[in-house]
Each structure stands twice: as structure tokens, then as C-alpha cells.
Amino acid sequence: SFNTVDEWLEAIKMGQYKESFANAGFTSFDVVSQMMMEDILRVGVTLAGHQKKILNSIQVMRAQMN
């Protein structure tokens, strides 16, 4: 498990989005775990492969939080 959203993004090789997530207010796992595709688009993730990777990881995160 990760301590910060930045660490999580690095771990899934999506570190290039750290600033975008932070600027959009997605700075805690409570918020990130609620993200939908529209949120991912809003933070500027436009590549389908990256969207899928982030969404898949969020689903895993949700499962671990319950």
C-alpha cells in the first residue's frame, strides 16, 4: 500500500500525472478512490492505455479499502 497519491502514481508508472492530480484536488486516497472516467479525463489523462491503467488501479484500491 502507498502513503501518498504521488507514490501510488509512481508505482503504477503514471508519475507524469502527479501535478495534474494535485492541481485538480485529487490528493488523498479517499478522493482518488471515488474517481470515475470523467475525473480521469478532467485531470488530463487522454491516452486510453493510461486511463485503463489508472482506472484498474483505482478499482483495486477500492477493493482494498472495504
Score class of each variant (00 low, 15 high):
residue 19 E to N: 10
residue 20 S to P: 08
residue 56 N to M: 13
residue 3 N to T: 12
residue 35 M to D: 00
residue 66 N to G: 12
residue 32 V to E: 01
residue 15 G to L: 05
residue 59 Q to R: 12
residue 6 D to I: 05
residue 22 A to D: 05
residue 33 S to R: 09
residue 39 D to L: 03
residue 14 M to S: 02
residue 42 R to K: 13
residue 26 F to P: 01
residue 33 S to Q: 08
residue 38 E to V: 11
residue 39 D to P: 01
residue 53 K to H: 15
residue 10 E to L: 06
residue 31 V to L: 14
residue 28 S to A: 07
residue 43 V to D: 02
residue 4 T to A: 07
residue 46 T to N: 10
residue 4 T to K: 06
residue 38 E to Q: 09
residue 53 K to F: 11
residue 50 H to W: 03
residue 9 L to I: 03
residue 65 M to A: 08
residue 18 K to A: 12
residue 27 T to N: 11
residue 60 V to W: 10
residue 6 D to P: 09
residue 27 T to G: 07
residue 4 T to M: 05
residue 37 M to R: 09
residue 62 R to D: 08
residue 58 I to M: 03
residue 51 Q to C: 07
residue 66 N to K: 12
residue 26 F to Y: 15
residue 52 K to S: 11
residue 19 E to G: 08
residue 66 N to P: 08
residue 62 R to W: 06
residue 62 R to S: 08
residue 38 E to I: 11
residue 10 E to I: 10
residue 31 V to T: 14
residue 54 I to G: 00
residue 40 I to L: 15
residue 10 E to R: 05
residue 30 D to M: 10
residue 34 Q to G: 10
residue 3 N to L: 11
residue 9 L to H: 00
residue 27 T to R: 09
residue 65 M to K: 06
residue 57 S to H: 11
residue 55 L to E: 04
residue 48 A to L: 12
residue 63 A to E: 15
residue 47 L to H: 14
residue 1 S to N: 13
residue 17 Y to G: 00
residue 59 Q to S: 11
residue 31 V to Y: 07
residue 49 G to A: 15
residue 60 V to Q: 15
residue 12 I to P: 01
residue 7 E to P: 02
residue 66 N to W: 02
residue 15 G to M: 05
residue 56 N to I: 11
residue 35 M to A: 02
residue 17 Y to I: 01
residue 24 A to S: 09
residue 30 D to P: 08
residue 42 R to Q: 09
residue 60 V to D: 12
residue 21 F to D: 00
residue 20 S to V: 08
residue 33 S to L: 15
residue 7 E to R: 06
residue 19 E to A: 12
residue 28 S to N: 13
residue 53 K to M: 14
residue 40 I to W: 02
residue 29 F to M: 14
residue 11 A to S: 15
residue 11 A to D: 12
residue 37 M to K: 08
residue 1 S to D: 14
residue 46 T to R: 10
residue 30 D to T: 10
residue 7 E to C: 07
residue 59 Q to D: 14
residue 49 G to P: 14
residue 45 V to I: 12
residue 54 I to Q: 00
residue 6 D to N: 10
residue 60 V to F: 11
residue 39 D to F: 02
residue 3 N to S: 12
residue 45 V to K: 02
residue 24 A to M: 08
residue 52 K to M: 14
residue 38 E to T: 09
residue 42 R to Y: 09
residue 60 V to M: 13
residue 42 R to W: 06
residue 3 N to A: 15
residue 43 V to G: 05
residue 25 G to H: 05
residue 54 I to W: 00
residue 47 L to F: 09
residue 29 F to R: 04
residue 23 N to C: 07
residue 9 L to Y: 04
residue 38 E to D: 13
residue 11 A to K: 09
residue 36 M to R: 14
residue 65 M to D: 07
residue 47 L to I: 15
residue 30 D to E: 14
residue 27 T to F: 06
residue 57 S to L: 08
residue 17 Y to P: 02
residue 42 R to H: 10
residue 1 S to A: 13
residue 46 T to H: 11
residue 61 M to S: 04
residue 8 W to H: 01
residue 19 E to W: 09
residue 20 S to I: 08
residue 63 A to D: 15
residue 63 A to Q: 14
residue 29 F to I: 12
residue 17 Y to H: 04
residue 13 K to S: 15
residue 30 D to H: 13
residue 42 R to G: 08
residue 31 V to R: 15
residue 66 N to L: 05
residue 53 K to G: 05
residue 41 L to W: 08
residue 36 M to G: 15
residue 11 A to T: 10
residue 21 F to S: 00
residue 7 E to Q: 09
residue 65 M to I: 11
residue 21 F to H: 00
residue 45 V to Q: 00
residue 39 D to T: 04
residue 42 R to C: 07
residue 52 K to Y: 09
residue 34 Q to M: 12
residue 23 N to Q: 14
residue 20 S to Q: 15
residue 18 K to R: 11
residue 34 Q to I: 09
residue 47 L to A: 11
residue 33 S to G: 06
residue 59 Q to Y: 10
residue 49 G to L: 12
residue 23 N to F: 09
residue 23 N to R: 14
residue 28 S to H: 08
residue 3 N to M: 12
residue 29 F to L: 15
residue 31 V to I: 14
residue 36 M to D: 15
residue 42 R to E: 08
residue 46 T to K: 13
residue 52 K to C: 13
residue 2 F to Q: 06
residue 40 I to P: 01
residue 5 V to H: 01
residue 62 R to F: 09
residue 16 Q to C: 07
residue 3 N to V: 10
residue 58 I to Q: 01
residue 11 A to E: 12
residue 52 K to V: 13
residue 6 D to S: 12
residue 15 G to P: 11
residue 51 Q to T: 06
residue 61 M to F: 05
residue 57 S to R: 04
residue 26 F to K: 05
residue 59 Q to I: 12
residue 17 Y to N: 00
residue 5 V to P: 03
residue 58 I to Y: 01
residue 63 A to P: 07
residue 32 V to H: 02
residue 16 Q to W: 05
residue 31 V to Q: 14
residue 29 F to K: 03
residue 7 E to Y: 05
residue 32 V to W: 02
residue 45 V to S: 01
residue 38 E to M: 08
residue 10 E to Q: 07
residue 7 E to M: 08
residue 16 Q to E: 11
residue 57 S to M: 10
residue 10 E to Y: 06
residue 59 Q to M: 15
residue 53 K to A: 15
residue 48 A to D: 13
residue 41 L to C: 08
residue 7 E to A: 09
residue 27 T to L: 07
residue 27 T to I: 11
residue 51 Q to F: 05
residue 10 E to A: 06
residue 61 M to G: 03
residue 51 Q to N: 04
residue 16 Q to T: 06
residue 31 V to E: 11
residue 37 M to V: 11
residue 55 L to K: 04
residue 61 M to K: 04
residue 44 G to W: 03
residue 49 G to F: 11
residue 34 Q to C: 09
residue 12 I to E: 04
residue 29 F to E: 02
residue 47 L to D: 15
residue 41 L to T: 09
residue 4 T to I: 05
residue 13 K to Y: 12
residue 42 R to T: 08
residue 44 G to N: 04
residue 24 A to P: 01
residue 7 E to G: 08
residue 9 L to C: 02
residue 53 K to V: 15
residue 38 E to K: 11
residue 56 N to V: 12
residue 24 A to K: 08
residue 65 M to V: 07
residue 8 W to R: 00
residue 12 I to M: 10
residue 7 E to N: 07
residue 50 H to L: 03
residue 13 K to P: 01
residue 25 G to T: 02
residue 34 Q to S: 08
residue 54 I to F: 05
residue 13 K to E: 15
residue 9 L to P: 00
residue 62 R to L: 14
residue 9 L to K: 00
residue 58 I to E: 01
residue 3 N to P: 09
residue 4 T to S: 13
residue 29 F to Q: 03
residue 62 R to I: 11
residue 41 L to P: 02
residue 39 D to G: 03
residue 59 Q to V: 10
residue 42 R to N: 10
residue 35 M to C: 03
residue 55 L to W: 15
residue 2 F to W: 15
residue 21 F to R: 00
residue 35 M to T: 01
residue 26 F to D: 00
residue 44 G to Q: 03
residue 50 H to Y: 03
residue 60 V to L: 14
residue 20 S to C: 09
residue 66 N to T: 10
residue 41 L to V: 14
residue 24 A to D: 04
residue 2 F to M: 07
residue 56 N to C: 14
residue 44 G to V: 02
residue 63 A to N: 15
residue 55 L to P: 00
residue 56 N to P: 01
residue 33 S to A: 12
residue 17 Y to A: 01
residue 65 M to E: 07
residue 45 V to T: 02
residue 59 Q to L: 14
residue 31 V to F: 08
residue 33 S to N: 07
residue 43 V to T: 06
residue 44 G to D: 02
residue 12 I to Y: 03
residue 42 R to I: 09
residue 60 V to E: 15
residue 24 A to N: 14
residue 2 F to A: 07
residue 37 M to P: 11
residue 16 Q to R: 11
residue 15 G to R: 05
residue 14 M to R: 00
residue 40 I to Y: 03
residue 27 T to Y: 06
residue 47 L to Q: 14
residue 46 T to I: 13
residue 50 H to Q: 04
residue 48 A to H: 12
residue 65 M to S: 07
residue 13 K to G: 15
residue 8 W to C: 03
residue 31 V to H: 09
residue 24 A to T: 05
residue 6 D to L: 05
residue 27 T to H: 07
residue 1 S to H: 14
residue 55 L to N: 04
residue 39 D to V: 02
residue 5 V to C: 03
residue 24 A to Q: 09
residue 11 A to N: 10
residue 49 G to W: 13
residue 53 K to C: 10
residue 32 V to R: 00
residue 35 M to K: 01
residue 41 L to D: 05
residue 17 Y to E: 00
residue 12 I to D: 02
residue 58 I to P: 00
residue 56 N to D: 15
residue 53 K to R: 13
residue 25 G to F: 03
residue 2 F to T: 07
residue 13 K to T: 10
residue 18 K to E: 03
residue 52 K to F: 09
residue 61 M to C: 06
residue 3 N to F: 09
residue 23 N to I: 11
residue 58 I to L: 09
residue 51 Q to E: 02
residue 40 I to V: 09
residue 28 S to V: 04
residue 25 G to W: 03
residue 22 A to Q: 12
residue 14 M to E: 01
residue 22 A to H: 12
residue 42 R to M: 10
residue 50 H to K: 02
residue 43 V to Q: 01
residue 32 V to P: 00
residue 65 M to F: 06
residue 22 A to E: 07
residue 25 G to L: 04
residue 28 S to G: 07
residue 20 S to M: 14
residue 2 F to G: 07
residue 65 M to W: 04
residue 50 H to D: 14
residue 39 D to M: 03
residue 65 M to P: 05
residue 56 N to R: 13
residue 23 N to S: 13
residue 18 K to M: 07
residue 7 E to L: 08
residue 10 E to T: 08
residue 19 E to Q: 13
residue 60 V to P: 04
residue 54 I to A: 01
residue 32 V to A: 03
residue 38 E to R: 09
residue 61 M to W: 05
residue 6 D to V: 07
residue 15 G to C: 06
residue 16 Q to V: 11
residue 64 Q to E: 13
residue 39 D to I: 03
residue 40 I to E: 00
residue 10 E to K: 07
residue 10 E to N: 08
residue 6 D to R: 05
residue 34 Q to V: 09
residue 57 S to G: 10
residue 14 M to T: 01
residue 33 S to M: 14
residue 52 K to N: 13
residue 54 I to H: 00
residue 48 A to T: 10
residue 15 G to N: 06
residue 60 V to A: 15
residue 2 F to D: 05
residue 26 F to H: 03
residue 16 Q to G: 05
residue 18 K to H: 04
residue 27 T to M: 07
residue 24 A to I: 04
residue 40 I to G: 00
residue 9 L to Q: 03
residue 64 Q to M: 12
residue 26 F to G: 03
residue 37 M to Q: 10
residue 56 N to F: 09
residue 40 I to Q: 00
residue 47 L to W: 05
residue 23 N to W: 06
residue 32 V to K: 00
residue 44 G to P: 05
residue 23 N to D: 11
residue 38 E to W: 06
residue 52 K to I: 15
residue 55 L to Q: 05
residue 44 G to A: 03
residue 52 K to R: 12
residue 32 V to L: 06
residue 44 G to R: 03
